[in-house]
């Protein structure tokens, strides 16, 4: 029924899980829905931290408190988004791998990750000096991290939507 896989992406796509999701009437849309709920949680909580770094909102709370309260939700929701996204990918692996928007989305997510790691490892070293209640001066490095994070995640949503409109164009 399915042709012999010619590469790793087809092997993934023609796996039991991949075929099940692709043939089911409810699995793909249901996974998409959970993916959306997870990703709005990821982006919503990240944006709250970004806006605090940019000095735009949430200034009544210390950065560390806001960061601690949001981070567990960001991480938990990201894991859920990655699992559901992974399952969506498996069902159409070879179609996604030739879709430039999918590759861009993965690339920009990697940039968002690098930005986050750099911020946590390097910029946050100085946070004792600016982690204050109210309108303490936030260093430029932290502001740049917040702005880049917002931009990257908006791009991730943009590329994510673009994938859905271009499946079948490149393949």
């Amino acid at each position: 029924m399915y042709p012999e896989p010619e590469n790793i992406w087809q092997t993934i796509e023609y796996s039991k899980v991949g075929i099940y999701i692709a043939e089911s009437t409810w699995a793909f849309p249901t996974l998409e829905t959970i993916h959306v709920i997870a990703l709005v949680t990821v982006i919503g909580t990240i944006a709250i931290v970004d806006l605090r770094l940019l000095g735009i909102a949430g200034l009544k709370q210390r950065f560390t408190e806001l960061s601690r309260d949001t981070l567990k939700w960001t991480v938990g929701a990201f894991v859920l988004a990655a699992i559901t996204g992974g399952l969506l990918f498996v069902s159409k692996a070879s179609t996604y791998m030739v879709n430039p928007y999918f590759l861009w989305k993965m690339g920009v997510m990697a940039l968002a990750g690098i930005n986050m790691v750099y911020f946590h490892v390097i910029t946050q070293k100085t946070q004792a000096a600016w982690d204050v209640y109210g309108t303490g001066e936030i260093p430029t490095g932290a502001k740049v991290a917040g702005l880049l994070s917002l931009l990257f995640w908006i791009m991730v949503v943009g590329f994510g939507r673009a994938i859905g409109f271009t499946l079948g164009i490149f393949y």
């Binding site: 959306v36 709920i37 990703l39 709005v40 949680t41 982006i43 919503g44 909580t45 944006a47 709250i48 309260d69 949001t70 939700w73 908006i154 949503v157 943009g158 939507r161 673009a162 859905g164 409109f165």
Partner: peptide
């Protein structure tokens, strides 16, 4: 259509994140 869907999704993110923080 996709452009306005992106605005729609980002707005949901703002609302859903805010609701989450109130719930917390």
């Amino acid at each position: 259509i996709p452009a306005f869907q992106v605005i729609h999704i980002l707005s949901i993110a703002a609302a859903f994140g805010s609701i989450l923080m109130i719930n917390v």
